[in-house]
Simulated assay, not measured.
Amino acid sequence: MKIGILLKEGPYNHQASDTAYKFAEAAIKKGHTIDAVFLYNDGVGNVTKMMDPPQDDRNIAARWDALSKQHGVEILACIAASKRRGINDDVIIEGGTITGLGTLTDIAIRNDRLITFGD
């Protein structure tokens, strides 16, 4: 099954980021394809390489970057939400791309499921 993910919550302040990542890992392990992760609203904060969590904490941006590199998952941040939060191409993870909201429609059309995490 081809799956798209919509993540609408920021890192560290809501369980949605961790749950979305663990869902993607589990789906890939079961043989499904995670086509893309679209970050919207506060979700765009998940892919800024400016985060510097304590040594004993998880690095959420590094997780998404690794998922992109290891499994070819597109990590896409909404341009409008990114601009509102001061996120641009200079601060986004290597595996991420800033794109328009129309891309979310494309993800919904080309995948069997679009799973949303966050309010």
Rank of each mutant, 00 (worst) to 15 (best):
residue 62 A to C: 07
residue 62 A to S: 10
residue 63 R to E: 14
residue 63 R to D: 15
residue 63 R to Y: 14
residue 63 R to T: 06
residue 63 R to M: 13
residue 64 W to A: 01
residue 64 W to H: 08
residue 65 D to Q: 02
residue 65 D to E: 06
residue 65 D to M: 03
residue 65 D to P: 00
residue 66 A to S: 13
residue 66 A to G: 04
residue 66 A to M: 05
residue 66 A to I: 05
residue 66 A to Y: 07
residue 67 L to Q: 14
residue 67 L to D: 06
residue 67 L to S: 07
residue 68 S to D: 01
residue 68 S to C: 08
residue 68 S to G: 15
residue 68 S to F: 11
residue 69 K to P: 03
residue 69 K to E: 11
residue 69 K to I: 04
residue 69 K to W: 04
residue 70 Q to Y: 00
residue 70 Q to I: 00
residue 70 Q to M: 08
residue 70 Q to L: 06
residue 70 Q to A: 08
residue 71 H to S: 13
residue 72 G to V: 05
residue 73 V to N: 13
residue 73 V to I: 15
residue 73 V to R: 15
residue 74 E to Q: 15
residue 74 E to V: 00
residue 74 E to Y: 06
residue 74 E to K: 13
residue 74 E to S: 14
residue 75 I to M: 11
residue 75 I to G: 14
residue 76 L to D: 09
residue 76 L to Y: 14
residue 76 L to R: 09
residue 76 L to N: 13
residue 77 A to S: 08
residue 77 A to V: 02
residue 78 C to Y: 07
residue 78 C to F: 04
residue 78 C to M: 04
residue 79 I to N: 12
residue 79 I to A: 14
residue 80 A to S: 13
residue 80 A to V: 13
residue 80 A to I: 13
residue 80 A to C: 14
residue 81 A to I: 01
residue 83 K to S: 09
residue 83 K to M: 10
residue 83 K to D: 12
residue 83 K to G: 06
residue 84 R to T: 06
residue 84 R to M: 05
residue 84 R to I: 03
residue 85 R to N: 10
residue 85 R to E: 11
residue 86 G to W: 15
residue 86 G to C: 12
residue 86 G to D: 10
residue 87 I to P: 03
residue 88 N to I: 13
residue 88 N to D: 15
residue 89 D to W: 09
residue 89 D to F: 06
residue 90 D to F: 09
residue 90 D to R: 08
residue 90 D to V: 04
residue 91 V to S: 07
residue 91 V to W: 07
residue 91 V to A: 03
residue 91 V to M: 05
residue 92 I to N: 12
residue 92 I to F: 09
residue 92 I to Q: 08
residue 93 I to A: 05
residue 93 I to H: 04
residue 93 I to S: 12
residue 94 E to P: 02
residue 94 E to V: 01
residue 94 E to S: 12
residue 95 G to Q: 10
residue 95 G to S: 13
residue 95 G to A: 15
residue 95 G to K: 04
residue 96 G to V: 05
residue 96 G to M: 11
residue 96 G to K: 01
residue 97 T to Y: 02
residue 98 I to D: 08
residue 98 I to P: 13
residue 99 T to A: 10
residue 100 G to H: 09
residue 100 G to Q: 12
residue 100 G to M: 03
residue 101 L to W: 12
residue 102 G to K: 05
residue 102 G to A: 11
residue 102 G to P: 10
residue 103 T to E: 09
residue 103 T to Y: 11
residue 104 L to H: 08
residue 104 L to I: 01
residue 105 T to G: 14
residue 105 T to W: 04
residue 105 T to A: 11
residue 105 T to R: 07
residue 105 T to F: 11
residue 105 T to L: 09
residue 106 D to K: 02
residue 106 D to F: 03
residue 107 I to G: 12
residue 107 I to M: 04
residue 107 I to R: 01
residue 107 I to C: 06
residue 108 A to D: 02
residue 108 A to Q: 10
residue 108 A to W: 00
residue 109 I to E: 09
residue 109 I to L: 08
residue 110 R to F: 05
residue 110 R to P: 03
residue 111 N to Q: 01
residue 111 N to L: 06
residue 111 N to T: 13
residue 112 D to W: 00
residue 112 D to F: 02
residue 112 D to A: 01
residue 112 D to Y: 01
residue 114 L to N: 09
residue 114 L to V: 00
residue 114 L to W: 05
residue 115 I to E: 03
residue 115 I to L: 07
